[in-house]
């Protein structure tokens, strides 16, 4: 069962990993995206490609409420429209110039993105908060085997040293999975550190299983 892979929303990052005024790269099954937050805190996502010369917009910069491409400084609003072309400062950019906007939503401290607006809301783990994300060069089956996790809701559940851990697993590119670790809201700082270290070890284990076909 790999129901996490078919969610209408894809988890791409933790909210805390994208502070105001920053942009990060992420992946949907439809291709690479740039996820960015304006100075005022508004979150957006769009295709990771400037329509001018194809430069990845996730290498760009956020000033105020717009995202600029690092290559020529073309500036885009949250609806994907181009608002300024520095080479022609007095030109109003034609409305045909767009960087493909995606749907972005925050829920429970996780950033979710979809190509088109889904009917459903992103999944929500009541009582849990995200700790950190990891990319694992293995498939979900290997992650499952390494962690000995069981299915719950739309994720995996495991108990490590008395700490309840939820894993949100999504496919990145067929060869890697993106994993978000969630812990119960009242987890102590020491247990947070311990869970993070456990996840590092689990990643190595999952990758060994995936590479060598080790099974349990």
């Amino acid at each position: 069962m790999t129901h996490t892979l078919s969610l209408p929303w894809t988890p791409v990052a933790l909210s805390s990993d994208v502070p105001p005024g920053t942009v990060i790269p992420a992946k949907l099954s439809s291709g690479p995206i740039a996820v960015w937050r304006t100075q005022s805190g508004h979150l957006s996502a769009n295709g990771d490609r400037c329509p001018h010369r194809g430069m990845r917009l996730s290498h760009g910069f956020v000033r105020g409420e717009t995202l600029s491409c690092i290559y020529h400084g073309w500036r885009f609003a949250d609806d994907g429209s181009c608002t300024h072309i520095p080479a022609h400062p007095n030109l109003t950019p034609p409305s045909a110039i767009k960087c493909n906007p995606r749907q972005a939503k925050e829920s429970g401290g996780v950033i979710w993105v979809a190509d088109e607006l889904p009917d459903e809301e992103p999944v929500f783990f009541e009582g849990y908060k995200p700790l950190r994300s990891l990319v694992v060069a293995a498939d979900e089956t290997s992650v499952r085997e390494a962690t000995q996790a069981t299915d719950v809701d739309s994720g995996l559940a495991v108990n490590h040293a008395g700490t309840d851990i939820r894993l949100l697993v999504s496919d990145l590119d067929g060869e890697q999975v993106f994993v978000i670790l969630l812990l119960a809201e009242n987890t102590s700082p020491e247990a947070c550190v311990s869970a993070s270290r456990w996840a590092e070890v689990m990643r190595q284990k999952a990758e060994r299983i995936c590479n060598h076909g080790e099974t349990t």
Binding site: P51, G54, M55, A87
Partner: peptide, 22 residues
């Protein structure tokens, strides 16, 4: 910059990339 343009190859199809007078 050059290692992060998509697609890697230069598109000769005029619809792929949007030029200006510059």
């Amino acid at each position: 910059i050059l290692e992060n343009q998509i697609p890697t190859r230069l598109p000769l199809d005029p619809g792929m990339e949007m030029p200006t007078r510059a």
